[in-house]
């Protein structure tokens, strides 16, 4: 029963995280949420008794992909208008609504 509760909460958190990755207005926040998403995916691989996949996901899903996204985010927002901070760009423009 405890195991089922663990499953259900993990799965609900995964879907909730995916939703927030796609709807949060701040792109940096979305990337950080995606890193956490990869981490929880690794937990669910462990639960499904796929340690091979969990190893790969632990290395790639949360580490490498997160670093790739952070680097790309910096490149896509850095030299747009002088030296603005990373996530101000998207936030300020979206917050008008």
């Amino acid at each position: 029963m405890v195991v089922s509760a663990f499953d259900i909460i993990l799965c609900l958190t995964l879907v909730w995280l995916a939703w927030h990755v796609l709807t949060s207005q701040d792109l940096f926040k979305a990337v950080v949420l995606f890193i956490s998403f990869g981490l929880l995916m690794a937990l669910s691989w462990v639960r499904l008794q796929a340690p091979d996949v969990a190893l790969a996901e632990a290395a790639i899903g949360s580490g490498l992909t997160g670093a790739l996204f952070l680097s790309a985010l910096r490149r896509m927002t850095s030299h747009r208008r002088g030296e603005r901070r990373l996530d101000c760009d998207e936030v300020r423009e979206d917050e008008g609504q």
Partner: peptide, 17 residues
């Protein structure tokens, strides 16, 4: 056991990063 080329490659890639 679990492990192999992919996982090792991913960790080596992380070290490179």
């Amino acid at each position: 056991q679990a492990g192999g080329a992919f996982q090792a490659g991913a960790i080596l890639g992380a070290a490179g990063v």
